[in-house]
């Protein structure tokens, strides 16, 4: 009883405290994914794109971790590596006490039902030559021993769970609108009752009017089924709405990770500050007068990142040290991590 009262007074800390009691479902430590660059007549390996370059975070049972950052910062690559859709170059991805990165192909396949993914492009992620029914049923064929009749029932049940008409089973993906296709993608991801879902920009390709519907659907499903989400997005207001904690990525590294309240109210890292200042404010008076941090220059080439802090080339407050010494990833306050020399 008393705990609840305190929670209401100090809303920002309560969910975090509650979440920290929950079991950790996924623990990523020092994950690196480098893609080789081949060039020349004999396609010699001349370097590598360091898409993800040492990323660590944890996700607790039932929470939503938002992963934000600009295009090309390695968000999606991280999401895919967590599901071992890419083989990590280094690091560990521990899902329920097992290192995903070290599993054999067959062990990995057996683990897949537990962890699923919702993709960005709802058109491209559905095989154009399969009916909706067979797309959703395929994981059931592969991983369960349900009879044909049971599978059909399960597929219809899933379609209804995501708000689609169960009569659509025999239609092809191209016969649906974008929002409907994304619902199909979600139904497919749910088919095997996973615990953990990577949502890779699930709303980026959708109409604004549909975005809210899909996000609400994701939230409802999370409540009903106790799902854990890694929600990748570049839409900060949507992340603020759905996530419990948020990680900000820049050039293959996480620069800040904290609860959604702390991150949006009190961003520590200069990049997070710049990112948040790019979100327009609904009130035109405030919008006209507020100060924005405008970043100059381009994101450095990920095959040749800066020596010190990855953000040093564009940071408005960088000092000499930032160009030579990489900042340490440290816990500033409970549930507030940052990688910056200047934050105290």
């Amino acid at each position: 009883m008393s705990a609840e009262v305190i929670n209401k007074e100090d809303g920002s800390r309560a969910p975090a405290g509650e979440k920290s009691k929950a079991a950790t479902i996924l623990k990523v430590s020092d994950l690196k994914i480098h893609f080789p660059i081949h060039k020349g007549l004999f396609r010699k390996r001349v370097g590598e794109v360091k898409a993800v370059n040492g990323v660590s975070f944890e996700i607790k049972q039932g929470e939503t971790l938002g992963l934000v950052g600009e295009s090309g910062c390695g968000k999606s690559t991280t999401g895919r590596a967590v599901l071992r859709l890419y083989d990590p170059t280094a690091g560990e991805v521990i899902f329920e006490d097992r290192d995903i990165a070290a599993l054999s192909a067959e062990e990995m396949r057996a683990t897949r039902p537990r962890m699923q993914m919702i993709f960005q492009d709802p058109q491209a992620c559905l095989n154009p030559r399969m009916t909706v029914g067979s797309i959703i049923a395929e994981p059931l064929v592969e991983h369960t021993s349900l009879s044909g009749q049971q599978r059909r029932e399960k597929v219809m049940e899933l379609l209804e769970a995501v708000g689609l008409n169960a009569d659509y089973v025999n239609r092809y993906p191209h016969e649906f609108s974008g929002g409907q296709r994304q619902r199909i993608g979600i139904a497919r991801a749910l088919a095997l009752d996973p615990d953990f879902i990577v949502c890779d920009e699930p709303i980026a390709a959708l109409d604004v009017s549909i975005q809210a519907q899909v996000v609400n659907l994701l939230e409802d499903l999370q409540r009903e089924r106790g799902l854990t989400y890694l929600f990748i997005s570049h839409d900060l207001s949507m992340v603020r709405h759905i996530a419990d904690r948020v990680a900000v990525m820049y050039l293959g590294k996480i620069v800040e990770l904290s609860t959604v309240e702390k991150l949006f109210d009190d961003p520590k890292h200069p990049y997070t500050q710049a990112l948040l200042s790019a979100v327009p404010v609904a009130n035109p008076e405030i919008e006209a007068s507020r100060e924005r941090v405008i970043l100059t220059g381009d994101v450095p080439n990920p095959s040749n990142p800066p020596e010190g802090c990855v953000f040093c080339t564009r940071c408005p407050v960088a000092v000499k040290k930032c160009f030579t010494v990489p900042p340490v990833w440290r816990e500033l306050n409970p549930d507030q991590f940052v990688a910056c020399h200047l934050v105290e």
Binding site: R80, L83, L85, A105, M108, R109, A110, T111, R112, P113, Q116, M117, F119, Q120, D121, A124, C125, L126, N127, P128, R129, E138, P139, E142, H143, G185, R188, L192
Partner: peptide
């Protein structure tokens, strides 16, 4: 390189099925 191939892999479909059913048929 299509997304639906990644979907099929994420479903946990056998690699053989991914290539010979999903990719080959298309």
């Amino acid at each position: 390189t299509q997304d639906y191939v990644r979907t099929a892999r994420a479903k946990g479909v056998k690699e053989q099925t991914v290539v010979l059913v999903h990719v080959l048929r298309n």
